[in-house]
């Protein structure tokens, strides 16, 4: 039910958060730049590791690299 007490307060919270972000100028500012982040290829070191094995291997490899690099 929409009027369930349990969800009342999170909703108010969500609404005030939304209002807050509206006032910051974030929306107006980035409309033109929205494609910026979203579409383009990752900029840097992070990538999804949905394949946990691949992610972990990479991490372990990198960990070892830095162990070596630290003398």
């Amino acid at each position: 039910m929409k009027t369930d007490n349990k969800i009342k307060s999170p909703r108010r919270e969500t609404a005030s958060r939304r209002e807050f972000f509206k006032m910051t100028g974030l929306g107006a500012a980035i409309v033109g730049a929205a494609a910026a982040g979203a579409g383009a290829q990752p900029a840097s070191a992070a990538s999804p590791a949905r394949d946990k094995d691949a992610g972990y291997r990479e991490t372990a490899h990198v960990k070892r690299y830095y162990e070596l690099a630290k003398y």
Binding site: S44, A45, A46, P48, G55, Y56, E58
Partner: peptide, 23 residues
């Protein structure tokens, strides 16, 4: 690791670069 964020194979910078953290 806990959040399932991996590291790009071709990344040369440590993961705590500001750009990586923003991403």
């Amino acid at each position: 690791q806990r959040l399932g964020i991996g590291r790009r194979a071709d990344a040369s910078d440590p993961e705590d670069h500001i750009a990586a953290l923003c991403e």
